[in-house]
Structures are given as structure tokens and as C-alpha cells.
Design a protein around this nucleic acid. Structure first.
Lengths: 239, 239
DNA sequence: GCAAAAAGTTAGGCGATACTAACTTATTTG
DNA sequence: CAAATAAGTTAGTATCGCCTAACTTTTTGC
């Protein structure tokens, strides 16, 4: 009964299914909001076969959620972008709420939010946001889109791209890998912390960073997952 | 990719789909835990065609969740009953949490919980329960099953079945119809309230009830939705 | 600038879950 | 107790979202 299907969806939204919301989120993430996304990239991010993506992408294009040209990847339409941002808002508010209100550790909020984002109503998400004081970022520092679809799209440099001597403030870390998040927490590399790149070994070697009064060495793969806002160095060098 | 399917499900549970959980809940509700449920009743409760129920019920029987004999309805197995109670626990804790922690009005918690119960992890549900002090009933007075599958199965009399003169304490009201819940709240017929049946008109006529210092008249259909625990009448009449 | 490699698509299927229409079994009732 | 009615099932189909295998288009690299 398709009536039951309909009514199981959420009032006020155009009843996108969970898989559709996941595709839109993935395409948004790949295209950073406005760019194009390749079939294989979408497939990899969603852990699906490329052929499945071809099929779904055609359907989403028919629904007007994205622009698709065979063999040339896809781009979100304005409507698709809005839908992606609604899901992203849900996801990040849920993450923030789980951490703030329910004491969830930051390495597990992502996984839980990944499921709840498809089931939570606008009302619930808004109540969560209000309860924890309308946060602007999630526990990993990712910006939360507003109700009307605005997001801070500032692009930050990763710790891996900073020059030696440059200082900055950690604004955001990748949120998907729990083990990595636990490790970063251990190192005290969390949003808000001030970091300075002390050295970098050649040939993709480890990067030495000072965080607080500690100095530590991390691999470039990990450093790439940490985004930093530059801070004008008080000593007058340059970042 | 069935791997993605798997991983989208919840750790620690045997990965029942949302429809399956809904069937089990419905069958549990109809059979009051141990009795049998008729195909048509299940169909009606889930707003599905009877033919769809026949199909699903066969599959659930193959999975060992229920005992099924063609043309003679179904009964939950022990495993099915446990699964139903797990879902019920989720549902009711979520309802209680929404009301307590997020200020949800009692007429809307059911609908929201109906979706969240399929997406929330055990950890989330347990954290919610802990946060609001391990409630024993949901906002409508329905008992919350414990983690190990025990529920209070006391059967109460409805207001429609009470003798004139009988007094009692409202323990539970039906939870699905928001409009009815708003009306009951208006009348102050909510769990915990003391009620006395003052009169009942013949031919299925209205029932006059005193609640607090008010006296009001409600139809038998509404009265049937209100469950009451008898209170030994202080004046010595009888219930 | 063409052949090899990479990327993407189509074709053909599958499992879940639902539907309608037609049929069978059970129950009720005169 | 037989006919009428109610309840339940089977058969055949659809949609969604996914898969693999085989094919086509685009890109890359000599």
C-alpha cells in the first residue's frame, strides 16, 4: 500500500527515502555544495557498485534533484542542494544533541546520527537544537546549516598543508572513523585547540605539531583529516 | 550491496527490518502477548491488504518468529515475543523521553516514536531511559518492558466497563489518536487521576464521570479507551 | 593520435514488501 | 446441514534499491 508508505514519511518534507537522502549527502560532500560528483566517487562513498549509482542517479535526475549527463557525472540542482542541506542539518544537530544532552562520546555520534537523520522529524530536530542552545557546529566542528539552508562554506587548510612555523586553531576533524577520533582525542587534537607546525619530515614523513604544551608527531594521512583556521602568528613569522 | 544493508542495521539485534518490527508489534498487541492474531486484524492494524499479511506471515514463520497454520492465524513464538517487546521498549522509552526531556506534547510522541523506534540503537534507548530516571510507563501510562523482556501485563478495566458508583485511578489511555489525547487532556482524564462513575445512560449512552471536582459526560467509545485501576471505595459501596 | 586503462552504462536478476483479482476454506445462519 | 458470508490464500505484478557481467565511452600515456 503506497498510502502507508506515504504516511510513514515525514510531514513537511517531500518524502525522500533514506537511500535518496544518502545519495544527496554524498554528492553534496563530494561537490562541496556546488561542484560535480563522479559516479565512482559516489559509489565508493556509499559502498555501492558503480552500476547501482548509475541507476539511482538517473532517477534522481528525473525527480529534478540533480543534473546528470551520461558519462559526465552529476551536480545537485538547487532543489537537490536544499534537500542535502536539510539532511545535513538533521545529522549535525542530532550529533550535537547526542553529545551534549546524552553524554555520547564523540566517536560514536556519527554512526547513531546516520540512522536517526532519516527518521527524525523537523520538530524533533528543532527541539533538540533549542534544548542545547542552537549550536553552530557539531561535535567534530562541522557547521550546521540553518533552517533556511545557509551554511558556512569556508574552506580551511588541513594540518597537512600548513607550513612549518604556521599556527592555527583546530576547527574541524573528519567524523566517520571512531578509532581515529579516539586517537585524536587522546592527542588533544580537538576543535578549539591551538596548534603549531614545528617540523615536517620529507617524503611524506611525519609532521611534528605542538598542541598545548605537548609536542607530537603524526602521519600526513591523519594530519589531512584535521582542518585548521590560521592564526596570525604573534611572533610575526607567517602561515 | 547486502553488506551495506547489514551495516545499516543495529549492532546487537538480529537486524529486523522496520516492517517486520511493525508486524511483530501488531501481533503482540492483538494477542496481548500470548494469544493468537487473525490475518485480517493484523492487516487492519497495519493498514495493509490481507493478502500482504499472508505473505509476510509465512516469511516470519520461516524465520521462527511466529507459529502459523494456514487459515488459522498466527501466534508469536518466544523469539518473536522477545523481539516485539524489544521494539515496544524502544517505542515507549522514546515516547517518555520526548515528553520529559524535549517537552513534546503527549498527543505527538506516539507518531514520532513510531519512526524512531526502528532507528534508535540500544545504547541510545538506554541512555534516554537513564537520563529521565528509568521510567516504568510511557506518557500514556503503558508499561515499559525491561531490558530482559519482562512487562507488567496486568489487565485493567476500561471506564466503559465500570459499574455506576465505582471509583478508580486512571492508569492508561490509548495512545494513537492525537485529537482524542488532546480532548482527554482537556477533560483532565490523564494517568494518575481519580475518577468515579456517577451514571450511565442506557442504550450505549453517555457515561457521567467525576474527575477531581468536575463532573463530565463522555461517550462509551471514548470511555473504552481509558483504563482504570479500581480503588476500594472509601464509602464502602463496591466497584 | 591511437591503444590501453579507467570510468561509466546497460542488461538481466534478486529480495523485500506491497498491491489486485481470483480462488479456497471456515464460519454463520436460516 | 446447506447456502451464504466472512476470512484467508494463491497467483501474478509492481517498485525500490541493490547486484554481476558485459559492453561503451572517455581519458591517459606513449
Amino acid at each position: 500500500m503506497s498510502a502507508a508508505r506515504e504516511e510513514s514519511r515525514l510531514a513537511g518534507r517531500e518524502a525522500l527515502t533514506a537511500p535518496v537522502e544518502d545519495y544527496l549527502k554524498a554528492i553534496y560532500a563530494i561537490g562541496k555544495g556546488t561542484g560535480a560528483a563522479a559516479t565512482n566517487e559516489i559509489a565508493q562513498r556509499l559502498a555501492l557498485a558503480p552500476a547501482s549509482v548509475s541507476g539511482m542517479v538517473r532517477r534522481l535526475a528525473e525527480q529534478g534533484l540533480l543534473a546528470y549527463e551520461r558519462y559526465h557525472g552529476v551536480k545537485l540542482t538547487e532543489s537537490g542542494r536544499r534537500a542535502a542541506l536539510r539532511t545535513l542539518r538533521r545529522h549535525r544537530i542530532i550529533e550535537a544533541y547526542l553529545a551534549e544532552a546524552l553524554g555520547y562520546p564523540w566517536d560514536r555520534v556519527h554512526q547513531e546520527a546516520e540512522r536517526l537523520e532519516h527518521a527524525a522529524s523537523d520538530e524533533l530536530v528543532d527541539r533538540m537544537a533549542a534544548t542545547i542552545g542552537e549550536p553552530e557546529v557539531d561535535p567534530h566542528g562541522a557547521p550546521i546549516p540553518t533552517r533556511d539552508g545557509a551554511v558556512d562554506e569556508t574552506e580551511y587548510r588541513s594540518l597537512a598543508d600548513m607550513n612549518v612555523g604556521a599556527a592555527g586553531s583546530v576547527v574541524r576533524v573528519a567524523d566517520e572513523d571512531p578509532e581515529m577520533l579516539r586517537y585524536l582525542a587522546e592527542l588533544a587534537i580537538v576543535p578549539g585547540k591551538r596548534v603549531t607546525v614545528k617540523a615536517r619530515a620529507p617524503y611524506d614523513g611525519p609532521i611534528t605539531v605542538s598542541v598545548g604544551r605537548q609536542e607530537l608527531s603524526i602521519g600526513p594521512a591523519l594530519a589531512a583529516q584535521v582542518l585548521v583556521a590560521p592564526i596570525a602568528d604573534r611572533a610575526g613569522k607567517r602561515g
